[in-house]
Write a protein that binds this DNA or RNA. Structure first.
Lengths: 335, 335
DNA sequence: CTGAAAGCGCTTACAG
DNA sequence: CTGAAAGCGCTTACAG
């Protein structure tokens, strides 16, 4: 293994000087610098990141804390994870995946000194991970929000997204619009659900209709259940907005199985998902594509800015989903 | 920050002794051990992983090298990544995501000393990453295989998988069975495709029919293209085996759009995908579920065994996909 | 069974 | 502009 010592010897300087040119932390005479750079090149030297981390007290490693995603057929998740990995690499950081299950693992993360900061996915309204993070003093950025709006976060702008979805449906004449969300399995659930619901209430308020909110599991079975509930209990609804990626396919299938058609009898918008997933469904769904990769990069940037002391780094960013018209929205048909 | 020095002081021992109990590397008197453990507990001490890494020349970090997965609507990918993360954590290792694009990044990885070993996803038949890895001496495990079968790998047992798919279809009377694979976009392509094709040829050989192989993009559009090709050029086929996750939905849609039905006119098995994805499609596809999480864990275990010098660690493991019957396979109908 | 000490490969005040 | 040296927090022969 070639070390800084080897480079220094070959260039006839001290290792301190080598370090200075590598880090650009101090002025070095041009000829000296040239000699050192030549030596680095010739030896194909690359700084040991572990030693650097220990000496500088900065590992340049970020942790991505996520719940168990293994079972989720969640197309946005992979975009998110990959976006974060790319974003980190582009700024010279590494990203470690951290499946947080228990307190012990959280301690290991916080006290182990492996990471300079953490990114949190799937933030709950009341999130014990966030509390521990705050208590520990480790810098972090949230994807999603807790009750406490003061913490640094990036999030989907659900208000704008739902607003646009409703406007799109209204432009086709729809006035009875149901919302289908994710059923939280124990715990307070992601803040997302709460925000989506209130955005929905605000958006349909001008229509003067009662809100119809159906929460189901994020699975095909959940989607079928939503369709049955919709048909049986809310036949007045001519449109539905889904914010439940995993349920979208099941909903479409069951609506058809019930002898109704999309968009003939029901117009559907699936929000916060991917266009690829929309394309898989029949009919091709009109979706509002989640800015997953973009959000991940922003979260990474916010965290690194914080770590590197960039002034005026924006603590909060909201991005709406993008409407991608498919074939699942049509005019209201009089029956 | 509380260090080993603090613990040693509180327990009235040297830091060496603290290190011995932490690592279990040397016999320590029971009372001494108890004192040290008490001190650790009281101070809530946790070993600094960076210092440990530097001193022991082992970081206990593994890299997961993957191509750009951002754009893929690949449901097995997330299972794979998460399986690897969990597997690593369970053995006390961390996993960093490494999007390998260029040579410079590869050098940084290899010479930086951050990781003890690497896991490679999406291995190509002829893979420059593998060559560099071999040359560098960094331990690794492949997911998938190259030309060279001597390297340590885990992989899906495509021969057994395709064999079972064909057997399943034959039990319904099918004898004209097409194969739909992934179109490699430049380069030699994943070894997977080659292996799948030869497994298919072997499996249908007893049927005495010409092989029908259709390679399309792994997208809904690709699936549609496959359906059209099948209908137009191979009307004799009564069944198809897909090994192209992203194309499965498009295929089903286009078959129906062409006025043919699944499984009435065409039986379909989608291999190497997830049951969740099969459930999303209409009709619910019979799938052969990829053992993605299991494979990831095995690869992690194989790599760690190698790192820790476990004798007789199996260098190669093959696991077949699991048949999950859906509604897309039926008897041959005489026309 | 325990400790003193060297060393892992860097960074970073401090001197000159 | 450059260097000698301390130090980051551990592990690990080596002595005793």
């Amino acid at each position: 293994m070639v070390t800084m010592r080897d480079v220094a010897a070959r260039a006839n300087v001290s290792i301190a000087t080598v370090s200075f040119v590598l880090n650009g932390t101090k002025r070095v005479a041009p000829e000296t610098r040239a000699r050192i750079e030549a030596a680095i090149e010739e030896l194909n030297y690359r700084r040991n990141v572990v030693a650097r981390a220990l000496a500088s007290s900065r590992t340049r490693i970020l942790a991505l804390l996520h719940p168990d995603l293994e079972s989720r057929a969640n197309a946005t998740v992979i975009q998110f994870v990959m976006g974060a990995a790319h974003g980190a690499r582009e700024r010279g950081y590494d990203l470690v995946l951290w499946p947080v299950n228990d307190d012990e693992q959280m301690s290991h993360l916080l006290a182990g000194g492996l990471v300079d900061g953490a990114l949190l996915m799937e933030v709950q309204i009341r999130d014990s991970r966030v509390e521990r993070l705050v208590a520990s003093g480790l810098p972090f950025a949230l994807i999603g929000r807790t009750e406490n709006d003061d913490l640094p976060y990036v999030d989907i702008d659900f208000a704008a997204t739902i607003q646009e979805a409703v406007a799109h449906l209204r432009s086709y004449g729809h006035e009875r619009i149901a919302l289908i969300t994710d059923r939280a399995r124990g715990g307070p659930g992601p803040g997302r659900i709460m925000r989506v619901e209130s955005a929905y209430r605000d958006a349909i308020a001008p229509l003067g209709a009662q809100p119809v909110i159906i929460a189901v599991d994020s699975t095909s079975a959940g989607g079928r259940e939503a369709a049955r509930t919709l048909c049986a209990e809310h036949p007045e609804c001519t449109a539905a907005i889904l914010v439940n990626e995993g349920a979208s396919a099941g909903l479409a299938k069951e609506i058809r199985a019930a002898g109704r058609s999309i968009p003939g009898d029901l117009s559907v918008i699936s929000a916060s998902t991917t266009r690829e997933l929309g394309e898989m469904i029949e009919p091709e769904l009109t979706v509002m594509a989640a800015p997953a990769a973009e959000l991940a990069r922003l979260a990474v940037d916010a965290l690194i800015d914080q770590l590197e002391g960039v002034p005026d780094a924006p603590p909060h960013t909201l991005i709406p989903c993008t409407l991608v018209p498919g074939e699942s929205v049509g005019p209201v048909t009089v029956s």
